[in-house]
Amino acid sequence: MSRRTGTIRLRRSLPGVVAAAVVGLLFLAPVVWMIAASFKPEAEIHRDVASLRGFIPTPATLDNYAAVPQRTNLATVLANTFLVVAAIALGGILINGPAAYAFARMRFPGRDVLFLLLVVSIILPLEVIVIPLFMTVAGFSGAVDLVGDRIFALGALSVPFMAKAFNIFLLRQYFLSLPRSLEEAAFLDGAGWWRVFWRIALPNAVPAVVTVVLLDFVVHWNDFLWPLVVCTGQDTRTVQLALGNFFTEPPISWGAILAYATLATAPVMLVFAFGQRWIVQSVAGTGVKG
């Protein structure tokens, strides 16, 4: 009996399953192909491109991965990108966290006007102001003599993106949703605002903080335009810019390019595997509530 209903159910859902498999493959295939091809000898990549063999790396080799650090300064580039992303995420919490808390809980003159200005700045994407932002950052270039090229470049890549209106907005929404009772109890115990923020509010807002950090990581790990504009030397590049250079500067070796692309993607895939649900829910939440 149960077996029979099982077969009927399978028969009914079969067209759906097949359709899902076909659509799923359309999205998966290029990614699987990229990873498979990155393990192939250079000559095979083009030969197998249109056959099913393109998806199976036989014979497999790690030569492409070995070639990447020989062709580019991979270690420096990865270190730069990690430093920039970490600085943006950490600085972001230190700067946006207290601001979001003040907008959620404290009374001060000009609060509503300032908040409105912040919301306006959300709709000003980097692409619109990229040239004048470059001019603004270039205005600080006197500091190069003080801190050196590399530190200046890393600063130019990170400092402009630490304070972010969208993150303030997201954190504020979360602070508003917390019950006030915990904070009030702390105030009765004689704690000040600073202490209440760090010890009570922020630890209770971990989901929002994680979301903001993960979003910053993905957006700035994947950014291409701003590094293209501000990076002047080999040693100040980020991972996406180096990949772009690798792709446009001859000699082109596809195996190494695809290996590099796979390496550049792996951290983001890990981040999403870990935090995808949080990210999507908080972004969707801004639309539903806002």
Partner: peptide, 13 residues
């Protein structure tokens, strides 16, 4: 204190 909390973000933005 609210001003101090908001100031860095407002200045940078």
């Amino acid at each position: 204190i609210a001003m101090l909390f908001v100031l860095p973000a407002v200045l940078l933005i």
